[in-house]
Simulated scan of single mutants.
Amino acid sequence: MTFTGFPVAALDFYDDLELDNTKSFWEAHKPVYLESVKAPMVALTDALEPEFGKAKVFRPFRDVRFAKDKTPYKTSQGSFTGAAPATGWYVEVSARGVRIGAGFYEASSERLAAYRSAVDDERRGTQLASIIKALEAGGWEIGGDRLKTTPRGYDSDHPRIELLRHKSLTVGRTLGFEPVIHTPELLDVVRADWRTLRPLVDWATAL
């Protein structure tokens, strides 16, 4: 299937799902999900696969076993293309349009220690700081879980203390309702953005 963009029906579907997150609504509108949401996402990730690798298109069902919120369905359709454990590129569509991102989304205690050691290292740490600075200058939003305090074993006046506080590190931007999201050209936008984010993904993959 050739990617032609996400139709307006995809955004409308999630608008309605946020108001009526029930099995009855889902069953009545499942064809819209399959045709307007899932199929375009699969086509998009298939087109990106030769350069970035196979994507995981997330299931629409929430895991509510341990959640206070028991609504059964996710209110966005995301996909993740991995380069290393919990590290890679992301794209999603929701009622708020399309969002693009990359980074590492969680880390084991061993990998977190490796991340902080790399940030502390003058060469590797300076490299990451430069990558993040360039992305921020380009309008990207820096996210991820982070400590409010100083990580144990590091000084509060460390030149890269803000990066050391991160337990995960993500970068993203929202296209929102820009007309391009409804066109085949969205593929070129996502490809270009993922290329822009490749230095961050490569840095994290080397941990």
Score class of each variant (00 low, 15 high):
Val32Asp: 06
Ala28Ile: 11
Pro60Val: 08
Leu197His: 07
Glu18Gly: 14
Val171Ser: 07
Asp12Gln: 14
Glu51Phe: 08
Ala10Cys: 05
Lys167Phe: 03
Glu35Met: 02
Arg116Asn: 07
Phe66Lys: 05
Ala83Phe: 05
Pro159Asp: 03
Tyr90Phe: 09
Val189Ser: 03
Asp15His: 15
Phe25Lys: 05
Thr22Met: 05
Pro50His: 02
Pro199Leu: 01
Ala55Ser: 12
Pro60Ile: 11
Gly88Asn: 08
Arg198His: 12
Ala84Ser: 07
Met1Asp: 06
Ala114Gly: 00
Asp145Ile: 12
Leu34Ala: 12
Tyr73Trp: 04
Val37Thr: 10
Arg116Met: 04
Pro151His: 01
Thr170Pro: 03
Thr183Gly: 09
Thr2Phe: 12
Glu178Lys: 09
Phe52Gln: 02
Leu44Val: 06
Leu169Phe: 08
Ile132Ala: 01
Ala83Trp: 04
Leu135Ser: 03
Ala137Thr: 06
Gly125Val: 00
Thr22Phe: 13
Asn21Lys: 11
Lys148Val: 00
Leu169Trp: 00
Arg160His: 10
Val201Ala: 10
Asp46His: 06
Val37Pro: 09
Arg96Met: 12
Arg160Ser: 01
Lys68Gly: 14
Ala114Leu: 09
Thr205Ile: 01
Ala137Tyr: 00
Glu162Asp: 14
Gln127Glu: 15
Val37Tyr: 02
Pro31His: 09
Glu92Ile: 02
Ser156Val: 10
Asp46Glu: 13
Ala84Thr: 03
Ile161Asn: 13
Val171Met: 08
Ala107Thr: 05
Gly138Tyr: 01
